[in-house]
């Protein structure tokens, strides 16, 4: 009986919005990196669905209306990229080279480690794009015949890892340049890493935002070919 009600699209839309709204409030109260609003919202919704025995498919009748906006949001990243690009403009060759090298390292190393540790092929296909912003990673995984939902979960985890430990790891490795720190955070940990880069400083943030977009493009272009070479 209730199941029929939950299948109304408004249920999925409403629970998504309210979960995020509450998660943001929680974050404002306790500013702690593991209280990432997206992570809390997802965990909250999963908990709710499990308690009330609602299938993911039932929730996603409405959820689809929310995730539809990922498509136009990826296009909007083009505008974001352009604005950041206009802010720096000068001498981008080394920057592009660094993101290219970092991006390829990210894809190849995660594939290599997973092969070495004998993870199933579908997991490797789902994690190849783990460093890039979630909407782009989802598209890449779909093309590679991986599982986009696994990609989304892991990509968020990667972002939180980079946000929490990225600057520490870089400083321990002897990196001092602000541009290097920003670019590395955006390349390895996309938007969630970029949020941390902005906390470190404006320059770090701008380079991180640019690196996030550029690595999204690079990874989208090269990963299908790399995967085809391997499998």
């Amino acid at each position: 009986m209730m199941q029929q009600f939950f299948q109304l699209p408004v249920f999925g839309v409403f629970i998504t919005l309210i979960a995020y709204f509450l998660a943001v409030k929680l974050r404002k109260k306790w500013n702690y990196v593991l209280l990432n609003p997206v992570l809390i919202a997802i965990a909250g919704i999963i908990g709710f669905l499990l308690i009330f025995r609602i299938d993911f498919e039932t929730y996603n009748v409405g959820g689809k209306y929310v995730s539809f906006f990922l498509g136009p949001s990826v296009v909007a990243l083009g505008v974001f990229f352009y604005e950041k690009y206009e802010e720096v403009k000068q001498n981008l060759k080394i920057f592009i080279l660094a993101v290219l090298a970092g991006g390829i390292t990210g894809v190849l190393s995660v594939i290599g480690f997973l092969l070495l540790l004998k993870a199933p092929e579908v997991i490797t296909r789902s994690l190849a794009a783990k460093s890039v912003t979630t909407p782009i990673a989802i598209e890449i995984t779909r093309l590679l015949n991986g599982i986009p939902e696994i990609t989304a979960g892991i990509v968020i985890a990667v972002g939180i890892f980079g946000n929490a430990f990225g600057p520490f790891i870089l400083k321990k490795s002897g990196i001092k340049s602000k541009i290097a720190i920003g670019t590395a955070l955006g390349t390895a940990a996309h938007g969630i890493g970029t949020a941390r880069a902005f906390e470190e400083g404006k320059l770090q943030g701008v380079y991180s935002g640019m690196a996030m977009c550029l690595n999204g493009i690079i990874t989208a272009l090269i990963t299908p070919y790399l995967i085809e070479l391997i499998f």
Binding site: G12, T16, L17, A19, Y20, P37, V38, L39, A41, I42, I45, I46, L49, L50, F56, Y59, N60, G63, K64, V66, S67, F68, F69, L70, P72, S73, V75, A76, L77, G78, V79, F80, T133, T134, P135, I138, P148, E149, I150, T151, A152, G153, I156, G191
Partner: peptide
């Protein structure tokens, strides 16, 4: 429009995260 979409980008991928279940 692009500023608004980017601002709420994270909300749009919540359903995929829920699909993890």
């Amino acid at each position: 429009a692009s500023d608004k979409l980017i601002k709420y980008l994270v909300v749009f991928f919540i359903p995929y995260g829920v699909g993890l279940m």
